[in-house]
């Protein structure tokens, strides 16, 4: 044991440091968390309106098969017979033969729905496990409705603190969003979801499932609107703040 005098001096110094450090830390932490209100877990998501479907999502994800996958927003889909997200641009025939398919992994599934006034309609679904998130179909679909777009699938995403795809994204389309928001839909999809939701509610009557679906669609759209508005507000504020410093 060292002599008592040294212990006192050292101990006092250490105690002082510890106490002040502790207060500073807790204070700063409380301030940081309190500033934006109690926010819960955040996850990564990409804004499909910014996405250029460059293909980096497929290869830069730390997972062997990327957590980013294609989504088809059916309420935006034209159910086209010549789907540019499905068929190669130099297709031989309009059937599901592999050489006609745009998707290199065959992850887009085409299913006949019905024929109306001479036009045949098809449903296009994404086979999740096959999709690697390369975005080829997204580019194709962009020639038409753009109902296909990429999203981070959160049942696969490991939610890295620093998302490797976000860093590698040439369009800087990745955002940290609140976990309960889950998705970022296209701006144009928000209205589509709302309309579908309202229609479901109108038709619901006695069907609780329809009502529930309609309500959840409207809730999804509301969250999206809120996020877009907040994003626009921040962008404006940030640019306003930075401008004087920049010049």
């Amino acid at each position: 044991m060292p002599e008592a005098g040294r212990t006192d001096r050292r101990g006092f110094l250490a105690d002082a440091l510890r106490t002040s450090g502790g207060f500073a830390l807790v204070g700063a932490g409380g301030f940081l968390v309190g500033r934006r209100g109690q926010e819960e877990l955040q996850v990564w998501q990409l804004d499909p309106d910014k996405c250029t479907a460059c293909g980096n999502c497929a290869t830069y994800c730390v997972l062997d098969v990327s957590a980013v996958k294609c989504v088809n927003c059916f309420d935006m889909c034209g159910f086209c017979d010549i789907c540019t997200g499905y068929f190669e641009t130099n297709y031989w025939s309009l059937d599901t033969a592999a050489e006609n398919q745009l998707c290199p992994t065959g992850a887009v599934i085409r299913r006949f729905v019905e024929e109306q006034s001479g036009q045949r309609f098809y449903e296009y679904t994404i086979d999740g496990p096959l999709c690697i998130g390369c975005g080829k179909c997204v580019k194709g679909c962009a020639l038409m409705n753009g109902s296909m777009y990429l999203q981070v699938e959160h049942d696969r995403c490991v939610n890295c603190n620093e998302c490797a795809i976000a860093t590698a994204c040439p369009a800087e389309a990745f955002y940290r969003i609140p976990a309960n928001q889950v998705e970022i839909v296209k701006q144009s999809a928000i209205g589509v979801l709302e309309r579908r939701g309202r229609q479901q509610l109108r038709e619901a009557d006695e069907d609780p499932q329809l009502r529930e679906e309609g309500e959840s669609l409207l809730a999804r759209a509301a969250v999206q609107r809120q996020w877009r508005a907040r994003q626009a507000g921040w962008d404006a504020r940030q640019q306003g703040e930075e401008a004087p410093r920049g010049s």
Binding site: C54, G55, N56, T59, P104, K136, A164, T167, A168
Partner: peptide, 20 residues
């Protein structure tokens, strides 16, 4: 290559070409 500057590295069949 943190910034994705070397591209996605996907093979040609993943490229979407609408040249034609």
């Amino acid at each position: 290559d943190n910034w994705g500057e070397r591209g996605s590295g996907l093979s040609e069949r993943f490229e979407f070409s609408f040249e034609e």
